[in-house]
Amino acid sequence: MGNAKLYKGSLSTIILKLLNEHEKMYGYEITQKVKEITKGELKITEGALYPSLHKLEAEGLLEVEVLKVDNRLRKYYKLTEQGTQETVNKLEELERYIKTMRALVNPEFRFD
């Protein structure tokens, strides 16, 4: 995927948004969900996903729950209260970014 760099800066926002819509998710599930929603256009690499998840966890935006599923342990991520608030901020930031980019690439587009 050639546009991976464009998405890289938004990875935390993508994770927060997904967790805002689902009560809890585990790493592999996040990669598959993104693939499904974007119809394969965006594939989150394992090497990028876990560092982002661990960073968000260290910042107190995510909390974890570990459950035994089948014959192994599974680590689920959930939004904390602070994480829910941060999701709103991050999504607003992303919206502004998209608007700016749209204005730059499409001169006919105007800010309200």
Partner: peptide, 18 residues
């Protein structure tokens, strides 16, 4: 799928976060 560096990126970032 973890790329050419295998788990090392994940380990480094985990250490930083912890």
């Amino acid at each position: 799928k973890f790329g050419v560096y295998g788990f090392s990126d994940v380990v480094i970032h985990r250490e930083r976060a912890m």
